[in-house]
Design a protein around this nucleic acid. Sequence first.
DNA 1: TTTATTAATCGTATATTTACGATGAACTAT
DNA 2: ATAGTTCATCGTAAATATACGATTAATAAA
Lengths: 111, 111
Amino acid sequence: MKRTLSVVEYSGDEECMASIAKAISHPVRIRILKLLTSQQCCFTGELTEIIPMAQSTISQHLKALLDSGLIQGEINPPKVRYCIHRENWLKAYSMFGGFFNADLACRCDCR
Amino acid sequence: MKRTLSVVEYSGDEECMASIAKAISHPVRIRILKLLTSQQCCFTGELTEIIPMAQSTISQHLKALLDSGLIQGEINPPKVRYCIHRENWLKAYSMFGGFFNADLACRCDCR
DNA sequence: TTTATTAATCGTATATTTACGATGAACTAT
DNA sequence: ATAGTTCATCGTAAATATACGATTAATAAA
């Protein structure tokens, strides 16, 4: 049977979760975020020294993280310092926490 | 200055986080997971009735979720029941929880 | 002014993702 | 056997992501 196939509309929450998930869906971006959080402070393009990837590629990944809102950059010529965007980070924390909240998970009889 | 550009090696954790994040990086997969968790029980291809997308597309997304380990399918001919994979779900919960853990976030002086 | 440093952006090649319709496999019911 | 149901898989087109080197912009240092 034929069905509608209109364009699917997503809620703001769904879009938001998905876009943050997409931001951390690449291992190098996870590594960058871990570096930014573990260094307990901001960080700059020393990332380029640490991670064996072309500078342009890293810059591209940083842009992806910026766009997601998970990090912020502070221009400090000729360098740029990146750090976690604390507010959005906390937001992500509670979003993912709520999403994966154990209590909600599958009370089914499958096995 | 020229740098190495060897292939970047990622840790198991980094790969794992990234692949789960990739699984939930599409809004329709988030919706599917929310349906599976909220229905407080398993679910079948009624998804096809609820979500205005081609059956083949939904099947494709279900495969992506299966591959991520977040859901499991139980063949129940001619139907298939899907539900959350509880163990992996809890694992994801703690992984993301640990990753976004507020205490770790950015003690920097940026602003 | 010239040179060096840092990092974004451009151009581009390749790989992956996403969507669809069509087909096929497995099983039920007639 | 035949027909119907459910769902995965195939083939495919279009969009997006990923990586690179080259270039450019902004600034500091000489």
